[in-house]
């Protein structure tokens, strides 16, 4: 029932208005309007979205600010994002809008030192996305539990797919944008390489093609799409895209697939389920039960990646294990 949907004419459509659209994307109004809902259900949704509108978010502030400046020209450019929102069902009732998210269970992650290999999630992502040299879209850090007790744990960090993303706000050309399903994408055919977004990301999750990206020929031959970011372009930004095309096809991202310990869950906040490829969890109760947190939550970026704190004890990892992950040995696919 979930079908992959193409975003077409990306360069033309996914404009700054995306920023404005984000504010209503979670309450289904977008999808509802496009499929000509019965008035009743729409009314209810409108009300809920009206309530949301009372919250002045940073983005809304910028949005109003922007509209005031840009005027009517902006309105005429509103892209038809319902194409992305619609999930292919033909029946009545509001269409469900996926809200992709991730849950990273830090208790189980051992940085793949147990396997004596470089982190498998990073490797899987690199190999399947032909990630150019030197980038680790998901990066596994080894970090201290706290300064007094000592001990370490491993910390896989994806792009946090912030719901209030500082990176998209600052892009001068709208080349990076939030999609209604959550993933923050980059249009590498529009990006001017100013790196403002990299400076603005508080998680340092953006990478740059400083030179001509080194990619194998099959990557270079692909038709460009921001959801796959293939082929890579020199002088543009790249990052983890949360694999929305995999999600829509009913699969989990490569990093989830690659993890031998089932650390990373991928799922849909709307449906409240997530999976690490082996088991399925109910997100809300799993988060509550395990005291989940979001990284740098105080910044107000509202990440879509949740962490379950832990120091490796569940997996039997010794917190005082001196071994670091072997990420320095990661191999990147080479072009010719």
């Amino acid at each position: 029932m979930v079908q992959p949907v193409q975003i077409e004419g990306v360069a033309g459509k996914l404009l700054l208005e995306r920023v404005c659209m984000d504010n209503v994307k979670t309450d289904g109004v977008l999808a509802g309007e496009s499929s000509k809902e019965p008035q009743a259900s729409q009314g209810a949704e409108r009300q809920s979205s009206k309530k949301d509108r009372n919250l002045i978010t940073r983005r809304r502030f910028l949005c109003l600010f922007g509209l005031a400046g840009a005027g009517a020209a902006v309105a005429s450019h509103l892209p038809n994002m319902s194409a992305v929102a619609a999930d292919g069902e033909t029946g009545g009732g509001p269409r469900r809008l996926r809200r992709w998210c991730m849950v990273v269970d830090l208790r189980r992650c051992d940085g793949c030192v147990g396997l004596n290999k470089p982190p498998r999630c990073t490797e899987a992502c690199i190999m399947s996305h032909y990630v150019p040299d030197g980038m680790e879209w998901v990066q596994v850090y080894r970090t201290e539990i706290n300064a007094h007790s000592g001990g370490t744990y491993f910390f896989p960090l994806h792009c946090q797919q912030c719901e209030n993303p500082p990176c998209t706000n600052v892009c001068p050309v709208g080349a990076t944008f939030a999609t209604p399903e959550g993933p923050i994408l980059i249009d590498q055919q529009r990006c001017i390489g100013c790196r403002m977004c990299m400076a603005a990301c508080p998680y340092d999750r953006r990478f740059f093609n400083w030179g001509e990206p080194n990619q194998p020929p099959q990557a270079k031959a692909m038709a460009y799409h921001p959801e796959t970011q293939q082929p890579a372009y020199k002088g543009t930004v790249m990052k983890c895209d949360m694999c929305p095309e995999r999600g829509r096809a009913g699969e989990v991202p490569y990093c989830v697939e690659g993890c031998p310990r089932g650390v990373i869950y991928y799922g849909d906040l709307e449906e409240d389920i997530a999976t690490n490829g082996r088991e399925i969890i109910k997100i809300s109760s799993y988060l509550a039960r395990n005291h989940a947190y979001r990284y740098k939550e105080h910044l107000g970026t509202q990440p879509r990646v949740y962490f379950i704190p832990g120091y490796g004890e569940d997996a039997g990892r010794n917190a005082y294990d001196p071994r670091d992950s072997r990420r320095k040995e990661l191999q990147w696919p080479r072009g010719t």
Partner: peptide, 10 residues
């Protein structure tokens, strides 16, 4: 692109 797609929020 700064002119073609300029976003006033940036």
């Amino acid at each position: 692109n700064m002119i073609l797609y300029g976003r006033f929020q940036s």
